[in-house]
Design a protein around this nucleic acid. Sequence first.
DNA 1: CATTTTCTTGACCGCTTGGTCAAGATGGCT
DNA 2: AGCCATCTTGACCAAGCGGTCAAGAAAATG
Lengths: 221, 221
Amino acid sequence: MKQESRPQTKKEIRLENERIILEAAEKVFSEAGFGGATMQLIADVAGLPKANLHYYFPTKESLYRKVVHEIFNVWLLAADSFDSASGPAEGIGNYIDAKLEISRTHPAGSRVWATEVMHRAPVIQDYLESTLVEWTDSRIEVLEGWIEAGLMDPIDPRHLLYMIWATTQHYADFGHQIETLNHAKPLSDEQWDAVKKDVKRIILKGIGVSVADIADPRNAQ
Amino acid sequence: MKQESRPQTKKEIRLENERIILEAAEKVFSEAGFGGATMQLIADVAGLPKANLHYYFPTKESLYRKVVHEIFNVWLLAADSFDSASGPAEGIGNYIDAKLEISRTHPAGSRVWATEVMHRAPVIQDYLESTLVEWTDSRIEVLEGWIEAGLMDPIDPRHLLYMIWATTQHYADFGHQIETLNHAKPLSDEQWDAVKKDVKRIILKGIGVSVADIADPRNAQ
DNA sequence: CATTTTCTTGACCGCTTGGTCAAGATGGCT
DNA sequence: AGCCATCTTGACCAAGCGGTCAAGAAAATG
């Protein structure tokens, strides 16, 4: 995983090694969990001696914490689709597309996050209570506005958000199961497109947003 | 966790201790993952000496395997709702109810399963490839039959199944996150009922099954 | 009651773990 | 060049791990 070793400045060395270590750590943590992962294995994947990891990240937990925080930021970025939208067809549709795209390109990160939350979030509980609560409350307001404007059915916005999170992240977290059920092959580009189409169709139609709006090319991305 | 110790037959002792150990193991595995769990901690939760665990379950992996297999059977039972149904409103509606009920009463088991699959199913891959594939293929046939009969929209049955699995299991696997977003309180009975109602409503309406059918008291359970 | 089988348990073992350290290598700076 | 700060690494350590074992307690058997 380590690249060529031509002379570098100290800053470059630091940044590159931190990146190498974080990528290796994300991969190993996602495959083995915090407890099952070992610093030795992360070091092997990174192509560095174990002692070098402890030079950049003093403890296993500090390394893990950094990995989880990086993922958290990726999650939040997907919310942009929501904010700039004029209505549910566009806003929710784009949000589903963005979250499914993250599941496709960043599955390891999604699995680390899922494991962390399933284990009662020992490392990032403060983030759940502050940032996530604020984010959720603000989107709920948007959804409630759309409901009051008659743009979608009056369902509990939380139940809708949970369904979107669950379904989109499922394709990352349970990717192995999906792959097994797909004749042991990863989803093709065409299959991913079909997933996006069906997920948007079921959810949008399910909350009373007409399918015509979905098919509208203005809302394609 | 160990109950009173009045005289018992060998058979009773064996059954009771296996049960105590399995329940403790499910709890500990679900909170720490396979790697993070320790036999000592399971022993402490069970209220038995560690050596006693190894008398009933020779290795940590054999204990874990038993826990996962038990959960797998619970999952399969929920499928009964599917088979005895006359159409999608009843079949899918009851299936969603059954799976949400498992998430409510058996969240630890769901989390162990999720962790196992996320880590590429090192222990139960054979089950995925045999039993799960067969189960899925057979339900897909049922769904395709309903589609051909015009009882629901022509969507890929896999995408529907994944959405149901993802959404229902989310309430167990991410229960901690949901609780945090619910003002740090577990969902009340009324909230669980509302979840069941909304999830069924969105999904059934989303696949073109009329809501009137859902409200039909004949389909209530 | 005597004997056998099953169950219980503290002590123990080899091994791996996260983490330390000190000596050396390398780039930065004047 | 020479000195300092940063980076690298093999060797090492205490702690905790999964698993073993042998001796004793308790139930089954006849």
